[in-house]
Design a protein around this nucleic acid. Sequence first.
DNA 1: CACGGGTTTGGAGCGGCGCTCCAAACGTGG
DNA 2: CCACGTTTGGAGCGCCGCTCCAAACCCGTG
Lengths: 232, 232
Amino acid sequence: MAAKAHRAPRRTEALSRDVIVKAATEILDAEGEGALTLKALTVRLATGYGAIYHHVADRNDLLAAATDHVIAPVVTDLAADTEPRQALRAVALGLFDAIDAHPWVGAQLTREPWRPAVLDIYESVSGRLRALGVPERALSDSAGVLVNYILGVAGQNAANARALAGSKMDRSAFLATVAARWADLDPAKYPSVLKARAHLREHDDREQFLAGVDLILTGIEATHRTGDGAAR
Amino acid sequence: MAAKAHRAPRRTEALSRDVIVKAATEILDAEGEGALTLKALTVRLATGYGAIYHHVADRNDLLAAATDHVIAPVVTDLAADTEPRQALRAVALGLFDAIDAHPWVGAQLTREPWRPAVLDIYESVSGRLRALGVPERALSDSAGVLVNYILGVAGQNAANARALAGSKMDRSAFLATVAARWADLDPAKYPSVLKARAHLREHDDREQFLAGVDLILTGIEATHRTGDGAAR
DNA sequence: CACGGGTTTGGAGCGGCGCTCCAAACGTGG
DNA sequence: CCACGTTTGGAGCGCCGCTCCAAACCCGTG
């Protein structure tokens, strides 16, 4: 039988952490979380496992690095001279759009929150809340609410995108599927869910997200103004 | 050689979906998300794969069912005669405690949000907000904020628990590890994170969560001017 | 009581995963 | 030109979720 080449030739262009992370991001964006396998990476980069693991700790490290690359510019690249409340809305919207464009980020944010991405978000929100006039001792609570809300929405988006990609339909067909699934819900047990179902078609996730941010900001301002606000 | 039994004897006690879900819940509580493998289940139930897959669609189905079993009683078993704002705080706290006791639930909630567990949460929150006097057309926004905040916190708790279980230390040692990881953060880039770090030890997740709920409720009331105001 | 069809069970086996490990290929300083 | 550290490629390991089928059981019928 043919003398098989015992080894493939070495790649010409140098491999590096950035190149690998970039390739991973492309796979994630194009085919979703599930498609990022080490095997897929070796194929796309025309290399082997060893080369990849020489630059990257493991699959988690890769996901986290890709997440940081998506998040960092969003919370950083923002004109500093804007009015604080508008700046906060801008940061929130920027995050929403980034996660909408890269849904796998939403899942990753809730998976390892101590990595830079979430720290960046917390820092950005915190700083702008301070600029808004929130007193120092209320900062961590206020920032916590906003960040957790953002992370919650991010997780939902990721879940939706996963379902959408898995069933290979477009957005409106997906909404129809959800509506159908809720159709035979017990109306006595789920009145509110069914009411929300009626408005599914005209519903805009982005708008609702922003409304939520405003609502929380109002709560922060009101709580701060009244001294200690709220029941305790 | 010994005539090997071609097959193990049949189990005596009947298998059922509930028995399987219960066993899964026990594994999850005792050893965490990662420990729930089909193999582990067959061992614990002294059975085979076929028997399990006869009652359960797949691993996801199992996780979802276990999640529902944890969540349902929390949002249902509540005296109906309580004052709305207190009832909302009670629901939120009940969820927090349930997720604190079963951290894997926190991860599952953000993974398949259209399953009963999240619907139950949304329904419960929605109904009590209506009782609070929130106008119908603002309900979905308001409920969305609260639910997403809860899901965000749930995800964080799950992540913390995962890290804690993975490294096999107790809570205070874990906090020390987190603090240490943040110690060599750039103070110019992360001033707020470092400030929060100083208060890590005296920090109570449950209290902060509740403060967040109050803050959001204040925001809801302020934006809709219900005129009632309730607990103060 | 025989028996036959439907249901429930046990487990071998499949394809695929993340990851380890080592030898080959390369770059570089002496 | 050689010796040695770095970078690369890929065979292989252990484990996973899951499929599939035959064995065991249950029960209505004659």
